[in-house]
Amino acid sequence: MESLTSMYKRYFDESLFSPKNEVSLMPRPEVGTGSIDRITTYSGIEIVYYNICYHASCPFVFASKGRMVELQFALSGQRQVMVSDQIYELPAGKGALAFMQNFQAQFYPPTPERYVSLALGIPVTLFDYAANQLATSLNRKFEFNRILDGQASRAYYFDIDTRSMALVKQLISVFTNANRSPLMMEAFALELLNRHMIQLFDLIPRPRGLSTGDLQKLHRVKQVLESCMADPPSLQALAKMAGVNDFKLKSGFKACFGLTVFEYLRHIRLDYAMKLLQDGEANVTEAAMRVGYSNVSAFSEQFFRRYGVKPSAIKNQ
C-alpha cells in the first residue's frame, strides 16, 4: 500500500508543478504563478501551503491505492475535486476533514482568483491513535475504517472560526520563515487536528450537571467571544445571550474548556494579536487596541507571559 509521503510526492510529480528547491514547487509557466511549499514533520504529517494564481483552469487526475486523511483550510479561491463521481467543493472561509482510500480524484483548480490554502496530510495510524485516545472516555469508535466503511471518500465540513484561523496563520508564518521551527510546525498542526477532531466528532465529555443543550449554549458563548473579542459583552450579558444563569456560565465554561471565560478571552485576544504582528498588519500599539487592550504595557506583559517573547520582537522579525 502506498505511504502518505510517497502519495504526496507522486501527486506533485504528476501534477502541474515543477520543483523550485527542496521545499517549494512552482506552477509551470503556462499554468500560473505563485508557489507551493511542502514539508513532512517528524510524526509524518504533510504540511502543504498553496499560494497560486492559475492562468486557466487545468484539470488533472490523480489515483492511488493508498489511504489518507487530510485537514484542509481554504483561505482564498475555491477548488473542486471529484472523487468517485462525487464533487467536493471548498470555498474560502471553509475547512474540511477528508478521508480517502483506493481512490481516483479529478482536480479542478480555481481561476482567475488567487488560490490560497493550507492542507495537513495526516497519517492514518496517527489519526486512529488520536481517535482511540479521544473517544475512550466516551465509549465511542470512529477509526478510519469505520468512517469510510468501504467507501472511497468522505468529508466533514466546517467554518474556519477565529481561533482556528489564528492557528492556521501562525503555522503558515512559521512555515514560510527561512528559520522555520519544525517543533512549532508540528505543534500547530497537532493542535489543529485535535481541535477539529473534537469539534467534528463531538468528543467533549459532558461534565456532571450539564445537559447537551447546556454544552451547545456554552459553545455559543465561545463563538460570541471570538466574534467580538475587542469589545465583549459582560458576563451577565453573555449569560442572557446564551440562555444560562451566571453560575452555570462560570462553572460550566471552566468545566468544559479548562479555562474561565476571561482566561479564554485573553488567549484568543493574544493569539489574534500575534497573527496581526506576524502578518505585518499592525504595530504593537495597533495590535493591542484592535484586540481590546487600552493599556499597551499590560498587553505587552500578558503577551510575554503567554509566548515568552515581547510583541515588539515579533514585529521586528
Rank of each mutant, 00 (worst) to 15 (best):
S3I: 05
L4W: 01
K9F: 06
E14L: 13
S15K: 01
L16I: 12
F17W: 11
S18V: 15
S18H: 04
N21V: 13
E22Y: 01
P27Q: 04
R28I: 08
R28A: 03
V31N: 01
G32P: 02
I36H: 09
R38A: 06
T40V: 12
G44H: 08
G44R: 08
E46R: 00
E46S: 06
I47C: 00
N51Q: 10
C53Q: 14
H55M: 11
P59L: 05
P59G: 07
V61L: 11
S64H: 05
S64R: 01
K65G: 13
R67L: 12
M68C: 11
V69A: 06
V69P: 01
R79N: 05
M82L: 08
D85G: 02
Q86F: 14
I87C: 13
E89H: 13
A92Q: 13
L97F: 06
M100H: 10
M100T: 03
N102S: 10
E113C: 09
G121R: 00
F127V: 01
A130W: 10
T136C: 13
N139D: 09
K141Q: 15
E143D: 15
F144K: 01
I147H: 02
G150L: 11
G150V: 07
R154F: 11
A155Q: 12
A155P: 08
Y156K: 10
F158Y: 12
D159N: 15
D161I: 08
R163G: 06
M165K: 08
L167A: 05
Q170D: 14
V174C: 05
F175I: 00
T176Y: 05
P182T: 03
L183G: 02
E186K: 00
E191V: 12
E191C: 12
E191Q: 12
L193M: 15
M197R: 01
D202R: 09
L203T: 02
I204F: 11
G209N: 09
L210S: 04
S211Y: 10
D214C: 07
K217Q: 07
L218S: 02
K222P: 01
E226D: 07
S227Q: 13
S227T: 13
D231P: 14
P233C: 07
L235M: 10
Q236E: 15
Q236W: 06
L238N: 00
L238P: 00
K240V: 11
F247Y: 15
K248H: 02
K250R: 15
G252P: 06
G252C: 09
F253S: 02
F253I: 05
C256M: 14
F257H: 05
V261R: 00
I268V: 12
D271K: 03
Y272T: 13
K275G: 04
K275Y: 06
E281Q: 14
N283E: 10
V284H: 00
R290L: 07
V291H: 01
G292R: 04
V296L: 02
A298G: 14
S300H: 05
Q302F: 06
F303I: 08
R305S: 09
R306Q: 14
G308W: 09
K310Q: 15
I314M: 06
K315R: 13
Q317W: 14
Q317H: 13
